[in-house]
């Protein structure tokens, strides 16, 4: 599903250069559930952005679903994001003016058009069938994240990327979210890569990758 070869990312900071990722080689098979861990500044968020085609590497190759995507134009990248990647963010990133249902429909907006029935199904799957017309501000943090999960899943992408999905939630809501993600992963066989710094959350995954200073230091399979 994912194959990274010598991925390097360098940011210019003034006249100096900051190497955030330094020669990452990584493969993730279809249907895997992987946790990325590491101290802040280790490059895990940058790696996730690269995996999600929000950013492009300075050097190296990235094969997503068999296609080399590291040299695509911004329009082609947007298309890849729309078709292959579902994002779940730490701060949910729902549009505050839209209802839960409209937010989920927005997930399909840029890949073939919206479908209200599928959006309702997705919300039902995350247990929010009763709250489809609520605005994000009328929902709890856990509920908002469930809407975000429905939004990511509604277009049935092969790859889901989650950036600290439980980081803004209390531990009970966090566990609920992880239960939903694990069961969706089990049911739909979707590939899931997740950044977290909570070990108990990482333990929901079958494989934990530790980053430090832009390099993979350890890899644990559970």
């Amino acid at each position: 599903m994912i194959r990274l070869e010598g991925i390097t990312k360098v940011y210019p900071i003034g006249k100096r250069e900051l190497t955030v990722l330094n020669g990452i080689d990584l493969s993730v098979e279809k249907g895997e559930m992987v946790a990325l861990m590491g101290p802040s500044g280790s490059g895990k968020s940058t790696l996730l952005n690269l995996l999600g085609c929000l950013d492009q590497p300075t050097a190296g190759s990235y094969y997503l679903d068999g296609r080399e995507v590291s040299r695509l134009s911004s329009g082609e990248l947007a298309q890849v994001r729309g078709q292959k990647v579902g994002f779940i963010f730490q701060s949910f990133n729902l549009l505050p003016r839209l209802s839960a249902l409209a937010n989920v429909e927005l997930g399909m907006r840029y890949c073939g058009g919206s479908d209200r029935r599928r959006a309702l199904e997705a919300l039902t799957k995350v247990g929010l069938a009763e709250r489809v017309n609520h605005r994000p501000t009328e929902l709890s943090g856990g509920e908002q994240q469930r809407v975000a999960i429905a939004r990511a899943l509604v277009k049935t992408p092969p790859l889901i990327l989650a950036d600290e999905p439980t980081g803004n939630l209390d531990s009970r809501s966090g566990e609920e979210i992880m239960t939903i993600l694990t069961s969706l992963h089990a049911e739909q066989g979707v590939t899931l890569v997740m950044v977290t710094h909570e070990l108990n959350i990482a333990h929901y995954c079958k494989r934990i990758i530790n980053l430090k200073d832009g390099q993979i230091v350890t890899e644990v399979k559970l």
């Binding site: 929000l54 911004s74 329009g75 947007a78 298309q79 729309g82 994002f87 907006r109 840029y110 939004r151």
Partner: peptide, 12 residues
């Protein structure tokens, strides 16, 4: 940013 992450192109 959200719309772009969801796959919106510049044209969209």
């Amino acid at each position: 940013g959200i719309r772009k992450a969801l796959g919106a192109r510049e044209w969209d």
